[in-house]
Design a protein around this nucleic acid. Structure first.
Lengths: 341, 341
DNA sequence: TCCCTTTTTGCATACGTATGCAACAGCCTG
DNA sequence: CAGGCTGTTGCATACGTATGCAAAAAGGGA
């Protein structure tokens, strides 16, 4: 029953009365084959149900047309959308995604080690949990690496990020202009570059507006973490605004503020997020948020990947994709016109 | 610079003073190698940075240790979580996921065709958009297929699903017991088995409670679709309860009911969802929902996959994973004790 | 000590495709 | 008609690993 031996190019060749190499050429775009032969081969292939073996092809071409994507935190709505967009874009270019989900708890280097065995043509790291030592190692092997929404000081690594520092600063300027006096900050993962830059921008922005450094608590980019951080801040710091390092946490923050502390938003408390992900637009939240434009970020990533795969010796690049503060109802607005950034 | 030729088993063998086959055996669990040689080979491998080539291995073993996963609708929080769990579970078993995202609009069969070229060991179909003709074709090729959260009448296809019909029925019984007289239904994708079964159960359950068939509108499992469906229903049918075919739509429904129609939930309108996904627990929604237990569903899927890969001739299996109605605040409850299912 | 069993090792080949090379056909130019 | 050029085809080999087989080595029993 399962004796269904796979149909090979040789089988097709025999049926079409030609050689295996001719069959190969028919399935290789741009190769030189006469229309007549091409038709015969296609016909034979169709009737036999031939499907080229990408594994065998990869072995010889040394290109798998597979891109490894490392992700974590699929519970944060930002990442699934990134994945969807990346996948669609790469599929359109004829690449497949080998997915690698990192458990933020466990060390994930040994797992991606496994992925590297598949001779992937490139790697996208969109998970904070992966060491950049690993990224460097890939690069040393000649495999292009792009860090997505993530950065290191390492000058040898390419990345695509949103404008985190400016975002933090804009939020600070906005909150200050609206008359908030005691803004607080809920941090994401302490080690992450996104969090560091957003916080730095926020703190600087507040300073520029003549406000003191904000109270802060860490939410680790998780729902529960942000809920706990909100409780702590509301109990101890009496803030009149909270800037959360991403929307996922901002939602948790709003839930706690409203339902556990009975606060009205933005009457008693303004809340601002980062990412401008789907739920930010849901009416219950109507979240003011600094956007990270998914489309352009993915476009930049795929563009770099394609170029690097074409020529691995190209110089490292760091792309910053601009975003903007999207004003909604979760934060009190300045009376006058907005300060222009 | 990028002359970094890949290190092969032969290089390691030379360095360790042995043969390529010995190196292969060292990296093959269960093969017979003396401790001494094993140590020498490992040492050589380490110093050269050897990484076995999974592509070459797949070519000869005819097993890629890759599982194709087809998904769509990553915007619905249910699926990313499935993906995360599937990935974690498969990685633990030494399998990788080749991700395939289907654009619900475009025909996706040609795309998965592409994926099949990678000699994947198995396929998980978690996207409604894919024809089951394709699934049958895979099976004919000897590649195990499991449909996730999806079913067909085809007796040759295995699947893992939640208890859709019972879920619909329980919701009906629950709403009726609480005294609702004009329940309505917001359907998901018309062609999908999940929607069909949930609706069927709901309609039957209502009939059993002596209620008429519900008003209905299609939301296509999308946020916007559900919002439009809600508007139509509220304008035309004056329902006192709405059962949505999934949580994603239930949230849209609640937003529209509250913010566009000024209804109080559950005072003026009860809303019930299906899936019991993360946001259902968020206090703003506090959504009563029939659960689809992710863990058991994924466990069942992976279990079947592993068995099928081990022995493709095993009979088709259909697993129904039970769920339960999780009572929260979005739907009025019966005064007395609940009817026991 | 010898013979038999078990373990360890290397040789050689297979997996399915791509591609350099040579052979050949057809066509054009002069 | 010679010579050259372009386009098409098949042959042979390479890619990196796994594995059957036989040879060699290591035990084990008497």
């Amino acid at each position: 029953m399962s004796t269904a031996r796979r149909v090979t190019a040789t089988d097709v060749a025999r049926r079409a009365g030609t050689s295996q190499s001719a069959v190969s050429r028919v399935f290789t775009p741009g190769a030189s084959v006469s229309p007549d032969l091409r038709e015969r081969v296609m016909e034979a292939a169709r009737s036999l149900g031939y499907r080229p073996n990408a594994i065998a092809r990869s072995l010889i071409t040394r290109r798998s047309r597979i891109v490894a994507v490392a992700m974590a935190d699929l519970g944060n709505q930002f990442y699934p959308l990134v994945l969807e967009a990346l996948s669609a874009r790469l599929q359109a270019e004829g690449y497949q995604i080998l997915l690698f989900t990192a458990d933020p708890a466990a060390p994930s280097d040994p797992m991606i080690e496994q992925v590297m065995r598949y001779q992937v043509d490139a790697v996208v790291l969109a998970s904070t949990g992966l060491s950049s030592a690993l990224a460097r190692e890939c690069r040393a092997l000649g495999v292009p690496v792009v860090m997505f929404n993530r950065m290191t000081d390492d000058p040898d690594l390419s990345c695509v990020i949103g404008d985190n520092e400016r975002g933090g600063r804009d939020v600070a300027a906005f909150l200050a202009a609206a008359g908030h006096r005691r803004p607080a900050f809920i941090a994401g993962l302490e080690g992450s570059s996104t969090n560091r830059d957003r916080e730095r921008g926020f703190v600087r922005g507040l300073a520029e507006a003549g406000l003191a450094a904000p109270a802060r608590a860490a939410g680790h980019y998780s729902y529960e973490g942000a809920a706990a951080a909100t409780r702590a801040l509301l109990r101890e710091a009496a803030p009149d605004a909270i800037f959360c390092a991403n929307d996922h946490m901002a939602i948790a923050c709003m839930e706690v503020a409203r339902h556990e502390f009975g606060l009205s938003i933005p009457g008693d408390l303004s809340v601002v997020g980062f990412d401008d992900v789907g739920p930010a637009r849901w009416r219950s939240y109507d979240l003011t948020s600094f956007s990270q434009p998914l489309g352009p970020m993915v476009e930049a990533t795929v563009g770099m990947l394609l170029e690097f795969m074409d020529d691995p010796s190209l110089p490292v690049r760091r792309v910053v994709v601009g975003g903007e503060l999207v004003l909604r109802g979760s934060a009190r607005r300045p009376a006058g016109p907005l300060p222009h950034p």
